[in-house]
């Protein structure tokens, strides 16, 4: 049984059609990286998986449960899906430890002692055991994002969604978050990652999905997509992202010296 099975997914915001027929499945243990230009619908696709956005049509199954079914207990499904946001979204009024324990206590009804122990394990896992009593505002962006990952892991999810987890970070802090994500991938966590970090996608992903204008243009093993992209649109995107200093003026229609 696939961890995620998406078929015929459409999503419109008013008259703007953001997703125009997406079919995608993610198998247990797979790390799927979704790349593509801004506005191509990558984040919307991710947010549809745990129903932060309501699909306009199509079906999404997570671990066999149809989340698009109106009778689906979405809170129960979400417990099994961790999500990491671009803006971290740590709870600002709670300490790091409370951030990692509140859902364990309130949702999973774990005892205080058990929630504390699991919080410590996961903070230790992301290298922040010594920050348990700090408030989010006292941490760097990279540290906040690692706490956000620990917060999700404490719920023991079977699937993790990452929505551009390093896009809001100073370049110097990107590595520490990617390191944690690489570790998770190595442990066999099923991950769907929207990212602009091409090196990460190339190195860690089991599959790379290239999206543009609300459709999947192509997908395949990283070596194939990065090494010999089939679609012209993919080639153009990768050229601009991977070799930004070699984009020529004629490509962008600039007319110097006229």
């Amino acid at each position: 049984m696939s961890t995620i099975e998406i078929s015929g997914l459409h999503k419109s915001f008013g008259r703007l059609e953001v997703l125009r027929g997406i079919d995608l499945s993610v198998e247990p243990g797979e790390v799927v990286c979704v790349i593509g230009p801004s506005g191509s619908g990558k984040s919307t696709l991710l947010r549809c998986v745990n129903l932060l956005e309501e699909p306009t049509s199509g079906s999404i199954r997570v671990a066999g449960v149809e989340v698009t079914d109106p009778d689906c207990d979405i809170d129960a499904v979400r417990r099994g899906i961790g999500m990491v946001f671009q803006q971290f979204n740590l709870f600002g009024h709670l300490t790091v430890r409370e951030n990692v324990t509140i859902a364990q206590r309130r949702v999973l009804k774990r005892s205080r002692a058990e929630a504390y122990r699991i919080a410590s394990d996961n903070l230790n896992r992301v290298g922040l055991a010594d920050k348990a009593d700090s408030y989010p505002a006292q941490l760097s962006g990279g540290q906040q994002q690692r706490v956000a990952i620990a917060r999700s892991l404490a719920m023991e999810p079977q699937l993790m969604l990452f929505d551009e987890p390093t896009s809001a970070l100073d370049p110097e802090l990107v590595g520490e978050v990617l390191a944690v994500m690489r570790g998770l991938a190595a442990e066999g966590m099923t991950m769907l990652v929207v990212t602009h970090e091409m090196a990460f996608a190339r190195e860690v992903a089991s599959r790379v999905v290239f999206m543009d204008a609300g459709v999947i243009v192509e997908q395949g093993r990283p070596a194939q997509v990065f090494g010999s992209p089939r679609a012209e649109r993919t080639r153009e995107f990768l050229h601009r992202v991977l070799e930004p200093t070699r984009v020529s003026e004629s490509e962008i229609g600039a007319n110097p010296g006229e």
């Binding site: 745990n50 932060l52 809170d75 129960a76 979400r78 417990r79 899906i81 961790g82 999500m83 946001f85 803006q87 979204n89 740590l90 709870f91 600002g92 509140i102 859902a103 309130r106 949702v107 999973l108 956000a148 917060r151 999700s152 719920m155």
Partner: peptide, 15 residues
């Protein structure tokens, strides 16, 4: 309160 706070809480399975 930023919308992301509610989204993060809902994502963790809170009603």
């Amino acid at each position: 309160v930023p919308k992301g706070q509610l989204e993060a809480a809902r994502t963790l399975g809170m009603s």
